[in-house]
Write a protein that binds this DNA or RNA. Structure first.
Lengths: 252, 252
DNA sequence: GCTCCGGCCTGCCGTTACGTGAGGGTCAAG
DNA sequence: CTTGACCCTCACGTAACGGCAGGCCGGAGC
C-alpha cells in the first residue's frame, strides 16, 4: 500500500509541512517517489512515523529520535516497550502535579501562603521519597487525602462562596464561645469541634476522628496553619485543638 | 521576601535566561529592581511563575498564558481549577496512548500488521466513544485487558523468546492433531484448546472461558487474526475456534 | 480534448522560546 | 582589596515547524 503526503498527514494527524520537514532533515524520507516527483509512503514509513509521533509526544528532539530509530541494536518491540515505560513515568509525573494543585487549592482555601519550595516542588529535581514522606506527615495517609480531594476540583465559584460562608459562621460562633469563657472541653466547645469535623467531611473529605486530631496537632505544629486561626482570634488555635481532642475522646 | 534571578531560577527549575525572556516579553516582570539594576522577585511574582510553569507544561504558548493570567475575570483558584482539569484530561490522553502501545505490542507479538488507522488512532481527532466501543468489541471488556497487559510491558527479550517457543511448540502439536483427523470436539483437541487458554493466562492475562470463546470468535471475524492461524496451517482457525467452544462448554 | 479544482512540488522567509556567548558591572567572603 | 560567583544588557543562533508564492499534476465533468 502506498500513500501520498496528504493521506499520511491526515492519518497521522500532522501537517504536510511537517512531513516535508521530516523529509528535509532525513528523519522520515518516503520510500519512493512517483514519476512526477510525488512522495510515496509505504507501510514501513507509517510504522516509523508512528514511533516518531510517540517519541515526539514524549518531548524528544527530532535529531535524537533519528538516532534512536536508526540504532540497529533495537528491534521494533524495544521501541514499544521503551515508549510504554516513558509514558507511565510521564503519567506519574502529571499525577504528582495534580496532587500539588490539590494541595495549592487546600492552602488557598485557608488563605495560606505556600513556601517557594512548595510552589515548585514538582518541577525541581525533587526526592520522591522525601515528597511522599512529607505528604504522609502532613496528611496522615496520603491515599485518603488524594481520593477525597477529587471532590474539590469540581467545585464551582458558588460552592466556594457557600463553603466560605459556612466556615465564617462557624468561626464567629467558636470565637464567641471562647470569649464567653467556656472551657475547651465543655460540651458546647466539643459540639463546635464536631461541627468543624463535619464541615470538613461534607465539603472536602471524610474526616475521621483520627484524622481530625491529626489536623489539630498540625494546626499547632505548622505555623502557617497556626497563623490562620490566630488571625481569627488570638488563642483560637490552642482552644480549637483542645476541643477537637476532647471531642474525639468523648466519642470513642 | 525578595529573590534574585538565580534564586528564582533554582527554585522554579528554569534557567536565568528564561526569566530574562519572560521579563523581555512582559510575561513576568519582577516587581522591582535593586539600585544597581538587579531584578528582585517577590512572593506574588513566584505565584505568577508557578501558574506560568503549569500552563507551560500543558503546552500553552507564552502569549496565551499572559492573556489568561492578566484576565481580571479569573481569580487565583480559578487557575488552579482550570489547571487541574487540563491535567486530568492530559493524563487520560496519555493513558489512551499507553493502551494503544499495549495493543501494538499484542499485534507485534502475533506478527500482525496494524492498519494505518490503528497506528494513529490516538493522535487523530478520534471519537472517544467509538474508540471505547472498538476496544470493547475486540477485547470483551477493556478493563480486564488493560489491567492484565501491565504485565506485558515488563517482559524482557528473553521472556519474549520463551513465550514464542512455547507458542510454537503448542502450534506444532495442534497442527499434528488436526492432520491426524481428530475432530475439533475430541478430548485431545479440547485439551489443546485448554492449553492455549492457559498459555494466554500465564503469559498475558487471566483468560476466562468467556474471554476465550470471545477470542475464538474474533479469530474468525478479524481477517488479520485469521491470517495468523491460517499461515500456521490452513483450516486451523476454524478447528481451534471449534475446539475452544467445545472446551468451554464441557467445563461449564 | 479541454477545463477546472484540489493536491503536490520546491523554495524561502517568519515565528516561538529560548540557548549561548561577549563584554562588562556587582557582592560578599577571605 | 582581590577574587569568584552572580548580575546586567546586547546580540546572534537554533529547533521545529507555519505560511505563502509560483508552478506542476490528476482526475471528474463537459
Amino acid at each position: 500500500m502506498a500513500y501520498t503526503v496528504g493521506q499520511v498527514a491526515g492519518l497521522a494527524g500532522v501537517t504536510v509541512r511537517t512531513l516535508h520537514h521530516y523529509d528535509e532533515i532525513g528523519l522520515l524520507s518516503p520510500s519512493g517517489r512517483s514519476s512526477t516527483g510525488y512522495r510515496r509512503y509505504d507501510d514501513a514509513d507509517l510504522e516509523r512515523l508512528q514511533h516518531i509521533r510517540y517519541y515526539r509526544e514524549l518531548g524528544f528532539p527530532l535529531e535524537e529520535i533519528a538516532a534512536i530509530l536508526d540504532d540497529p541494536a533495537s528491534d521494533p518491540t524495544a521501541h514499544l516497550r521503551r515508549q510504554h515505560e516513558l509514558l507511565t513515568v510521564r503519567i506519574k509525573r502529571l499525577q504528582e502535579m495534580v496532587t500539588a494543585i490539590e494541595f495549592a487549592m487546600e492552602a488557598s482555601k485557608l488563605n495560606i501562603q505556600l513556601t517557594p519550595e512548595e510552589r515548585f516542588e514538582v518541577f525541581g529535581d525533587f526526592d520522591p521519597e522525601a515528597h511522599a514522606e512529607e505528604a504522609e506527615r502532613r496528611w496522615g495517609g496520603s491515599e485518603a487525602y488524594r481520593e477525597s480531594n477529587r471532590r474539590v476540583s469540581r467545585y464551582t465559584k458558588e460552592d466556594w462562596l457557600r463553603i466560605k460562608a459556612e466556615n465564617e459562621d462557624w468561626g464567629r460562633r467558636i470565637v464567641a464561645l471562647m470569649s464567653s469563657g467556656a472551657p475547651a472541653d465543655s460540651p458546647a466547645a466539643m459540639e463546635l469541634a464536631e461541627e468543624h469535623r463535619q464541615l470538613i467531611s461534607r465539603s472536602f473529605y471524610e474526616c475521621s476522628y483520627e484524622i481530625h486530631t491529626g489536623l489539630a496537632d498540625m494546626y499547632l505544629a505548622d505555623e502557617r496553619f497556626t497563623a490562620h486561626y490566630e488571625a481569627i482570634a488570638p488563642g483560637l488555635t490552642a482552644y480549637l485543638s483542645e476541643a477537637i481532642h476532647a471531642n474525639a475522646i468523648s466519642r470513642a
